[in-house]
Design a protein around this nucleic acid. Structure first.
Length: 672
DNA sequence: TTGCCTCGAGATCA
DNA sequence: CTCGAGGCAA
């Protein structure tokens, strides 16, 4: 049944009223009507929409919780990346930041900074099209995040339709989702009364809420939103200043921080920080510092961005929180490479919003420098996203029986010798794969997502496999069958079948993943990828000498030696053989063939000294790829390879506009 | 490093 | 109901 015109009009009226009140309440923080009246209007609208379902629109306030559970969080691509911020933890770091900014801008005057409190929540991107909320997504890796629209829609300080005026056709709003202290307390109190579990801090509660599959659950969480910037914008001229962007956002109907302020120079920044710090306790939400952004957009452009953070902004963080606790023990953990890492076992202490019971002590030098002993009272520090740290010992509280921490002579796991090479900080167990701890870590690495990607093979299972003597090398994984597996804990028939299937599936891989999975020291994902492209097959890599290895981009003498000694070890070669026999395969690259022709027709001239090869070797490598080498620069020269102290050839090449390669660029070209 | 959520499946109890 | 694995965020 279609709704009559008067019902339609009334519904629109009610919606406008509600949205208007949402706006005044959540964005302007100036409510106009009592809650009871709001509820009455909402109920009337719900009734009306129930009667005439065709009246329901996606931006109706009744639809905040209307969404259905999602099956999986879809990926959302951020056309304008969501960057993170560099941190400053003290006055010096702030001063350095300001100095760098002024240097790059080449100005002596005071730079204007837009300051605002740094909310302790999680970053979010909201997409409005034609003023209607289309999508809400998490930051993810900055480029691709997760679609959490269904949960975002339940947040009342996020307008489903922009109530303001003059908003652009497409608007991506960037801001922070958080939970107010009061909301957090009330929610936990209610949960306690119901006998349910409570959240440990507002930030985790907010983050957890967004990960709910069912938006009804998120709707019960007191989430809020404050905007602090924009991403993609279509159909509006971009303002000259960040502070104007904030003004625009407010005008379009979005909540921005009432504490935002433009300040002048490093002195103004410091004052602003002090002011917010003094106010911190009075603010209704948790903050962990202030953000300072160069206000003028033109200046932002000059400064640009370095890797993942803009050079024009900084998070000036409040000092990390510190607590005193007792160092109960120090254990030495054995990593994949055999490195022994001392880990402090602490009497659990609540600091910076979480309970800390472990902290790494890094190495023996660190222990000696801080002079920590077992039984000592220590200061533990934690700042938001920073790994907890043992800062110092409270010497006055040192008990008589405090024990010095000694580096074990033998591996705590396999009793092999522990050696510490002179001048190196780390000590290592020499047990190799005979050491169960190293074996476990190697297997775990081998199976990990970015390596062979064996789903379902986690820590517990690997421990069981190693301890049951079922696996001694990664190759042994491929010999496992359901019957053997089914004998293990929490491994019944179904789990066993799933695992065998996952192992089978992992056999189809790529050379890069395979090389990475081997766990050669210093060979991470990127290096493994370079090696795979360069050599094209595993045999060539296994037999390459250090000289050749060093012509791979980003492979220097150390990595080359590591690779060489890995493959010199007969045991490792045997494992590779066995893996191949077990059926591990990857698409053939035929890199050798393409390498032979890739530079065909290109004329090279070499000048100066290269670090990695002699002139002849470099020439051989060029010819091996189909290129030609000449001794003098002419118009026909395609590339000049310029090493150290290049002379007249370089000058001539520059004059002729010939492409000049330094050693790094040359290596990249060879490897490409 | 910690905390949170989800999913599949095993373990447990009625 | 509980556990392990996996994934995500700061």
């Amino acid at each position: 049944m279609n709704a009559p015109a008067d019902a339609k009009r009334r519904a629109q009226e009610l919606r406008d009223t509600l949205s208007g009140h949402d706006y005044r309440y959540y964005v302007l923080d100036a409510p106009e009507i009592p809650d009871a009246e709001y509820d009455r209007i909402m109920r009337e609208l719900v009734e009306l929409e129930k009667q005439y379902p065709d009246l329901v629109t996606p931006d109706s306030p009744t639809q905040r919780v209307g969404g259905l559970p999602v099956q999986a969080f879809a990926e959302v691509h951020h056309s304008v990346p969501m960057l993170s911020l560099a941190n400053a933890f003290d006055d010096q770091e702030l001063t350095d930041f300001d100095r760098r900014v002024r240097e790059r801008l080449d100005t002596d005057g005071e730079v204007e900074y837009a300051g605002e409190p740094k909310l302790d929540g999680l970053a979010i991107s909201l997409r409005y099209e034609g003023g209607v909320l289309i999508c809400g997504a998490t930051r993810g890796d900055g480029t691709t995040g997760e679609d959490v629209t269904h949960n975002i829609r339940t947040i009342q300080s996020i307008p489903l339709r922009l109530p303001g005026t003059g908003f652009p056709k497409v608007l991506e709003v960037r801001g922070e989702i958080f939970m107010s202290r009061a909301g957090f307390e009330a929610m936990n109190e209610a949960a306690r009364k119901r006998g349910e579990k409570t959240f440990v801090n507002p930030r985790n509660a907010a983050a957890g809420s967004l990960r709910q599959v069912d938006p009804k659950l998120a709707a019960r969480r007191p989430l809020e939103f404050i905007a602090y910037g924009v991403g993609e914008v279509q159909g509006a001229s971009s303002p000259d200043r960040h502070s104007e962007t904030l003004g625009q956002l407010k005008q379009w109907g979005l909540r921005v921080s009432p504490e935002a302020k433009v300040v002048k120079g490093v002195d103004g920044s410091r004052e602003y920080y002090e002011k917010i710090a003094a106010k911190r306790e009075q603010l209704p939400y948790e903050i962990d510092g202030v953000v300072l952004k160069v206000d003028q957009v033109a200046q932002q452009r000059i400064l640009g961005t370095v890797s993942k953070a803009p050079r024009w902004a900084i998070a000036f963080k409040f000092p990390a929180q510190e607590e005193m606790t007792v160092l109960e023990n120090v254990e030495f953990r054995v990593g994949r490479t055999g490195a022994l890492t001392p880990v402090a076992r602490l009497k659990p202490v609540f600091v910076g919003g979480v309970t800390v019971s472990n902290a790494t002590l890094h190495n023996m030098d660190e222990i000696e420098r801080k002079d920590v002993r077992i039984g000592d009272s220590v200061i533990v520090r934690r700042a938001g996203d920073v790994i907890p740290e043992v800062v110092s010992v409270v010497l006055s509280k040192r008990p008589k029986r405090a024990r010095r921490i000694k580096l074990p002579k033998r591996c705590p796991v396999c009793s092999s010798d522990v050696v510490r090479i002179e001048n190196e900080a780390v000590a290592r167990c020499v047990g190799g794969l005979f050491c169960p701890a190293q074996l476990k870590q190697s297997i775990l690495h081998f199976a990990s997502r970015r390596a062979m990607h064996i789903d379902g093979l986690g820590e517990k299972l690997v421990s069981q496999l190693v301890e049951a003597d079922l696996v001694h090398t990664p190759a042994d994984l491929f010999a496992l069958d359901t019957e053997t597996l089914a004998g293990l804990e929490r491994m019944a028939e179904q789990s066993a079948r799933n695992l065998v299937e996952a192992i089978e599936k992992s056999k189809q891989t790529t050379l890069a993943r395979f090389v990475y999975a081997l766990g050669i020291r210093e060979v991470g994902e990127a290096t493994a990828g370079n090696l795979a492209v360069f050599f094209g097959d595993i045999e060539a890599l296994m037999d390459a000498d250090e000289e050749v290895l060093q012509s791979v981009p980003d492979v220097g003498p150390i990595v080359a030696t590591n690779i060489r000694s890995f493959f010199t070890e007969p045991h490792n070669r045997a494992v590779v053989e066995k893996l191949l026999e077990a059926g591990v395969v990857w698409p053939k690259q035929n890199a050798a063939v393409s390498a032979g022709t890739r530079l065909s027709g290109k004329m090279f001239v070499l000048t100066g000294a290269l670090a990695a090869y002699t002139r002849d070797e470099a020439a051989d490598r060029i010819r091996a790829r189909g290129g030609r080498v000449s001794s003098s620069v002419s118009k026909k020269t395609d590339y000049l390879v310029a090493g150290e102290s290049a002379g007249s050839k370089l000058a001539k090449a520059e004059k002729l506009g010939i492409e000049i390669l330094d050693e790094t660029a040359f290596k990249h070209l060879l490897a490409r």
